[in-house]
Design a protein around this nucleic acid. Structure first.
Length: 606
RNA sequence: GCGCUGGUAGCUCAAUUGGAUAGAGCAACAGACUACGGAUCUGUAGGUUAGAGGUUCGAGUCCUCUCCGGCGCGCCA
């Protein structure tokens, strides 16, 4: 018998487990629904020694009393309630401090049983996401700046999937354009072969150089210029030979891309590029015309958005060139229709730099004019530019942040940056941990080096510009990827030692009585709530910041054991030790899951 | 010119979307009982949130103006 797919019920946030009894108690006193109180809880401002805060402004206003007076009144209510929560009124705030053992008893069982699962919400169950990201151009290298779309998109894919969404990862390749005419022209003129291309150390470099030679040759030779144009036309018309060569160039480029995507651990479900939509734009164009939305302006076909009631748009959107060629707004509309027909997505993300905001506003608006059912489900996930520190700008210019180019003005290649990061990581690891042998050290250097570059890209708000320096990204202290990975490795190390000792005692969360243990638990609970926030805001940095807070709490806890034998996980009291190991397991699992959601590896030793 | 966007500690960034004495990391300084991994931790110092008005119990956050950046504005994507 077939059962309908039941969406997993979303579990209540862990913090609610702590606040629910308090909210119920206060709501009973105030005579309002518990939810009205529960919604107000917030983490206290930094420097305030409390676990949760209840700002009393709104509740006080409804009751026409002064907020500080209400806070004091509620503190009294809680004191008399026997809930075991310390409540202190500080001005208009009611600050709550929980018993560590009580927090552990509520949160730890689920976290220790399956940390990754305990962090997931299931809020997106039954919903489908189409996410368009990375989208490089064929026959060009993946440049360093491509890391932004690629890794923001990769992280969002994982975050949505962890929240229960079905995720379709789309790489909208730039595999069409006049450059191919020139490439084919040069290829045939030089009589190149597939074997030669395959033999190249880097196939994209091979194609780049071919392109440069071909355009240079054409500069002084109108016949070659014509030849390139002819091939372009042939390609558009579906000529077999042109098509075959185009396919060869595309395959060669994809092989190079896969090398880099492999380093980053990124994969896609769809590689449909611009070429795929070449013959699929006519219906959209026809429909736009039939609905009277288009007009002709200087020979080009446009949608005059302002004329159709959208007064925010000062200029019309271009659909088709004067020579009949289509533009990318048309292609995006056709692609959206295609994706809608195939997936009936509940949300579609376009992870593309902020410089293209206007383009997305325009064609989203066009989708609305066309009354597309998905029009309100489209989101442009924009991001800032990648800047690299330049010490030698030359020409008497000051050192400073600049778009990613080398001193000679060439673009920095993503693969080269990753390779240098791995090299630097390898050197540091070799020095700090000489015990690691060749193969394992190599694997860890890759996880740490690449993770450092990726984390540097994700740790701050995505709309900010990202500033990159090898020295900063590859620090092993501070707010970096290696710092997170190190905290994870420390926890793994303790678990390994515990396994050797093979203590048989059972753990009991209620024995975790230390303040620093409570801080780890609270950081875990906050990480969970931040995972949901990250999905709603399409913002991986929210997770990055929560992980830094968790790693910091973990490090403080573990380091306390240096000065105090009693504070160690592996201490004389076997029962206490087993209890603390539950927390180690929870924190290690959560850090590992968090790193995975950002697209970083989680090495077990470094 | 029009539009979008940003300006928070010396540097790089946070700030629960209108809430407390604006918090971290780095750099600086001072500490931690040979460390369950010290690649760590604890502390000190560092601020007129670019500037000026306004909105209200309350503004880094909202509205207006000014100053200084970045980006975009028809046949590229």
């Amino acid at each position: 018998m077939d059962l309908p797919v039941q969406p997993r019920s979303s579990r209540p946030p862990m913090l609610d487990l702590l606040t629910a009894p308090v909210a119920a108690c206060l709501a009973a006193h105030l005579g309002c629904p518990p939810d009205q109180v529960a919604r107000l809880f917030a983490p206290p401002k930094g420097g305030v020694a409390a676990d949760l805060a209840l700002p009393c402004f709104q509740l006080a206003k409804e009751r026409k009393v002064a907020p500080p007076a209400l806070a004091a009144e509620l503190a009294g209510v809680l004191a008399a309630s026997g809930l075991g929560v310390a409540a202190a009124a500080t001005g208009p705030f009611l600050n709550l401090t929980f018993q560590p053992a009580a927090v552990a008893a509520l949160l730890l069982p689920a976290l220790a049983a399956d940390p990754a699962r305990a962090l997931r919400s299931g809020a997106g169950a039954g919903r489908t996401l189409c996410i368009d990201f990375s989208s490089p151009n064929i026959a060009k290298h993946l440049a360093f700046h491509h890391i932004r779309s690629t890794m923001i998109g990769n992280s969002l894919s994982r975050l949505y999937a962890a929240a229960g969404w079905k995720v379709v990862r789309i790489n909208f390749l730039g595999d069409w354009g006049t450059a191919f005419g020139r490439l084919i022209s040069g290829w045939t003129r030089e009589g190149l072969t597939l074997a030669q291309l395959e033999a190249a150390e880097d196939r994209v470099t091979f194609l780049n150089e071919l392109y440069v030679r071909s355009s240079q040759a054409a500069k002084g030779d109108p016949a070659l210029e014509d030849d390139a144009r002819r091939w372009s036309k042939k390609l558009e018309d579906g000529d077999a030979q042109a098509r075959e060569l185009w396919q060869i160039f595309k395959d060669a480029s994809l092989k190079e891309f896969e090398r880099v995507y492999g380093l980053l651990g990124v994969g896609f479900d769809s590689w449909k590029g611009e070429a795929y939509y070449e013959d699929k734009m006519a219906p959209v164009l026809a429909e736009l015309e039939a609905k009277g939305l288009t007009s002709i302006d200087q020979g080009a076909t446009v949608v005059d958005l302002a004329a159709h009631g959208l007064k925010d748009f000062k200029k019309p959107m271009l659909l088709r060139r004067a020579d009949g060629g289509t533009l990318y707004a048309t292609r995006d509309l056709a692609a959206a229709d295609d994706r809608w027909n195939e997936h009936h997505f509940d949300r579609a993300l376009y992870v593309v730099d902020l410089g293209q905001s206007l383009h997305f506003k325009e064609w989203f608006a066009s989708a609305r004019l066309l009354a597309r059912p998905y029009a309100e489900r489209l989101r442009h996930v924009g991001f800032g530019v990648l800047l690299v520190w330049n010490d030698e700008p030359g020409e008497g210019l000051e050192p400073g942040w600049a778009k990613g180019r080398t001193r000679k003005g060439k673009v920095m290649l993503l693969r080269e940056v990753l390779e240098e990061a791995v090299e630097r990581a390898r050197a540091i690891i070799a020095e700090k941990n000489p015990g690691l042998d060749g193969a394992e050290r190599e694997r860890i250097a890759a996880q740490v080096g690449i993770g450092a570059v990726v984390f540097n890209d994700l740790k701050n708000g995505r709309t900010n510009d990202v500033k990159f320096r090898f020295e900063e990204a590859l620090r092993f202290d501070g707010e970096t990827g290696p710092y997170l990975q190190y905290a994870h490795a420390r926890l793994c190390s303790i678990e390994r030692k515990a396994a050797e000792a093979a203590a048989g005692a059972a753990g009991d969360p209620a024995r975790l009585a230390r303040e620093d243990e409570k801080q780890v638990l609270l950081a875990l609970a906050r990480l969970q709530s931040q995972l949901e926030r990250a999905v709603e805001a399409d913002e991986p940095s929210v997770v990055a910041q929560a992980l830094l807070a968790l790693a910091s709490a973990v490090s403080a806890w573990l380091t306390a054991g240096n000065a105090d034998q009693e504070a160690r996980v592996l201490c004389a009291d076997a029962g206490l030790s087993a209890s603390r190991l539950l927390l180690v397991r929870a924190a290690r699992g959560a850090l590992g899951e968090g790193l995975r959601l950002l697209g970083l590896g989680a090495p077990e030793r470094m």
